[in-house]
Each structure stands twice: as C-alpha cells, then as structure tokens.
C-alpha cells in the first residue's frame, strides 16, 4: 500500500482500540506499523489530532525509536546481531558475508530488490551466536554456509 492510498479514516479503528489506555501512543504506532508496514505521514496528523499532541511531538517519537519507519519496508528483512556476544562468535565476518552475498551497501539496501540487511543489537540468543532474524524467524549458531542455505531457500 502506498502512502497516498491510505486515508485518515483508515487510522480511526486503530485509535479507537487504544486511545483509552494510559500512554497510548506507542501501542498506536505499533498497530499502525503492523497494519500498513510503516507509519505514513497522514497517520501522524491523525494521531496528533486525536491525542491532542503537536505533529512535531508525534514525529519526534516516531523518529526516536529504531523500530518505526516512515517509508514502506522491504519484502524481506535480514537482521544480523552485531552485539558483543555474537561478535565473539564471528558476527562481524557473517555480516560481511551477508552484505557481499546480497550485494548490500552499509545502508542496508540490497541491490537485489526487496531484501534489506539491518543491524540489530541483541536478540537474546547470546549463548548460541551468531544470531540472525530472517523475516521474523530467529536462527542461532549461524555460519556463512547456514546463512547461504537460508537465503537460497528464499530464492536469493
């Protein structure tokens, strides 16, 4: 769904679900992102009106958190843990392999359309690193051969 196809009224059911909760903004933003894949500009306006906040305040929250995105994401997302425990098990080499394998720059956008490579700091799999999350599914003890197989299964 593109930004222009989303109307302010599409946001209203989400607002209705959460607005009575104390501190509803984060649950609302999670729900919007769940529904549309990102936080469209029009949602920020609508949420700001409903919560009696400035648009800048809502935008400030959206931009503060790594999880929220303002543009549609890729069809596939490979998140590689860069934290220390995974580094101790070879995560740096794994990330280099993944970027080379997918021809992705350090900005994460793969030349191969629809596959983003992102850094993540700790998936809680520190005793079975290196860890990756491919399209939401966690994998532990991932070496380059295993990652190669996982990507091949996706047709990459």
């Amino acid at each position: 769904m593109t930004d222009t196809a989303i109307r302010a009224t599409d946001i209203d059911p989400i607002l209705a679900d959460h607005i009575a909760r104390p501190g509803p903004l984060l649950p609302i933003l999670h729900a919007v992102q769940q529904a549309f894949g990102f936080i469209p500009e029009i949602a920020i306006t609508r949420i700001a009106e409903a919560l009696n906040l400035g648009r800048a305040e809502v935008h400030g929250v959206v931009s503060f958190y790594h999880d929220f995105r303002s543009t549609p994401g890729s069809a596939h997302v490979l998140r590689i843990c860069r934290a220390e425990a995974c580094q101790a098990q070879g995560a740096v080499a794994l990330e280099e392999f993944a970027r080379a394998r997918l021809d992705a720059g350090s900005d994460g956008q793969a030349a191969a359309e629809g596959m983003a490579v992102e850094a993540v700091y700790c998936l809680g799999l520190c005793a079975c690193g290196p860890a990756v999350q491919l399209d939401g599914v966690l994998h532990g003890r991932v070496d380059s051969a295993r990652l190669d197989r996982l990507l091949a299964e996706l047709g990459r």
Binding site: G23, P24, L25, L26, P27, L29, H30, Y65, H66, D67
Partner: peptide, 21 residues
C-alpha cells in the same frame, strides 16, 4: 507494553517516558 528498539529505554526513567508515549 512493547518497546520499539531503543536500548536506552532499559534505563528506568527513559522506560517510564516511553511507557507514557
């Protein structure tokens, strides 16, 4: 409540701000 990928929200006062939206 689900966090949104900010490590610093593990700090208790930052967490409270996040909880408040």
């Amino acid at each position: 409540r689900i966090g949104a990928g900010a490590y610093v929200c593990g700090e208790e006062t930052a967490l409270l701000n996040s909880l408040e939206g």
